[in-house]
């Protein structure tokens, strides 16, 4: 496994963040895509190959699981408990990043202002 594999170090890429977030409720691939586009007003969209690859990756990491009988051509998934925990952790990480950025930019604003 590559060292920079984000899941290995317990971080979510933007793509896996939005997919996991969408799977707080049970959804299949197409609904995940629609949900993300609605949520971000079209600002973030995921290509089908990235969607498939990321779903399989989250699945094998135990962060999401198959929902229902798994029959039919569209498979429905839902976040597992450890998926929700990692999502929470990643939200905190991202919040902290914003706090840091604001600190730096506010200081810069005070100096120049």
């Amino acid at each position: 496994m590559a060292r920079n594999d984000s899941l290995e170090i317990g971080e979510l890429t933007d793509t896996s963040f939005y997919i996991l977030l969408s799977l707080v409720e049970a959804r299949h691939g197409y609904l995940i895509m629609q949900n993300i586009e609605e949520l971000t007003e079209g600002g973030f969209s995921i290509g089908p190959a990235s969607m498939y690859t990321t779903i399989k990756k989250l699945l094998s990491a135990g962060l999401i699981e198959l929902y229902g009988d798994g029959k039919g051509k569209r498979k429905t998934y839902i976040a597992t408990n450890s998926g929700l925990q990692l999502l929470e952790k990643d939200i905190q990480r991202r919040e902290l990043m914003i706090v840091h950025a604001k600190q730096v930019l506010n200081q810069k604003g005070e100096k120049s202002g």
Partner: peptide, 25 residues
């Protein structure tokens, strides 16, 4: 035209293709 490489088993082939079709491919 785009090429993808899928090494995993064919069991989820239908799911794989459907995700692409739903996105207009």
């Amino acid at each position: 035209y785009k090429l993808d490489y899928k090494a995993s088993s064919d069991q989820d082939f239908e799911e794989y293709v459907t995700i692409f079709e739903d996105a207009g491919w």
